[in-house]
């Protein structure tokens, strides 16, 4: 199915071109690229004091952390742990996903995927998305990957030749396109104001109802107020999936006539 590969390459190229256009537009942007929009979280220290690259002593001079935040000394103590956690889990994520796309054995690929999902759940925790981290583990590592494993067990066939693009040229082209994609997305994302380091930050401010940010209660309040409609509507999507999956995959009955003869007509 070369169409898939062709389409995918074209999609990548399209997006790559998009970045060039995006960069061009950003040059003459009305607003500065790092302008903060929306309700800025009130735990952001002023930029001047926290620009990346300043020494630790400079960073220690950040005035008045948000109420409830740990003191600077405490922040310094936890910082090493946070940085270590980020790099560790980030490495695990990337390694796991590389496993997925390089292994010939499907079970190995799935195990890499499980590692990726667990590491992502940990990263969500670093982002104070505690509820989502648990859901990530339950839904992805728990349900989706088990589904994959079951199907692999049913099929029980390793791939003959793991790479679709025949020839070194195709692989190199795909690799280059992908690398360039990373480079271009990265070059846009890296300009996102990152002066507020995660390590320095304590928990975000509590919600209006007094719940911890990202906790089950806080996400629940949001889900059942702002997102009530999509939350209800997603049940229909799940219903389609349940009914549809059974309709497609249930075993064929003997009294069902073969339809292949019917489909060959007209050729």
């Amino acid at each position: 199915m070369t169409a898939r590969v062709l389409t995918a390459i074209l999609a990548v190229l399209f997006v790559v071109l998009a970045f060039d256009a995006g960069a061009a537009h950003a040059q003459g942007a009305v607003a500065p690229v790092d302008a903060k929009v929306g309700p800025a979280p009130d735990f952001d220290p002023p930029r001047s004091a926290t620009t990346a690259g300043k020494t630790v002593s400079k960073r220690d001079s950040v005035a008045s952390p948000a109420p409830g935040a740990p003191t600077n000394a405490a922040a310094k103590r936890t910082k090493g742990g946070m940085v270590f956690a980020f790099w560790g889990f980030a490495a695990l994520t990337v390694l796991g996903s590389l496993f997925v796309i390089t292994r010939r054995n499907l079970i190995t690929a799935v195990m890499g995927m499980v590692g990726t999902f667990f590491a992502l759940a940990a990263l969500y925790m670093l982002l104070y998305a505690h509820f989502l981290a648990i859901i990530q583990m339950l839904v992805y590592a728990g349900a989706i990957m088990v589904l994959f494993v079951f199907v692999i067990m049913i099929l029980n066939k390793p791939e003959d030749e793991p790479f679709a693009l025949s020839g070194r040229v195709g692989k190199v082209l795909a690799g280059l396109a992908t690398t360039y994609l990373v480079f271009r997305i990265g070059s846009v994302l890296i300009d996102v104001p990152s002066h507020v380091t995660i390590a320095q930050n304590a928990a975000p401010a509590k919600t209006a109802a007094g719940d911890d940010w990202g906790s089950t209660a806080a996400v629940g309040m949001n889900l059942f107020n702002d997102y009530l409609f999509p939350f209800e509507a997603v049940s229909l999507t799940l219903l389609i999936a349940v009914v549809g999956a059974i309709a497609i995959a249930r075993p064929l009955k003997d009294d069902e006539p073969a339809a292949e003869a019917a489909t060959t007509g007209g050729h």
Binding site: A8, A11, V12, A52, M82, V83, F86, W87, A90, T93, V94, S97, L98, V100, I101, T116, L123, L127, T178, T179, L181, V182, I185, G186, L189, I190, D191, V192, P193, S194, H195, V196, T197, I198, A199
Partner: peptide, 19 residues
């Protein structure tokens, strides 16, 4: 100094690996 950009670039890398 781990900041938002680190998470975002990690996301971009993951996306590209998926592609």
């Amino acid at each position: 100094d781990v900041g938002y950009a680190h998470f975002l670039v990690l996301g971009a890398v993951l996306f590209a690996i998926g592609v």
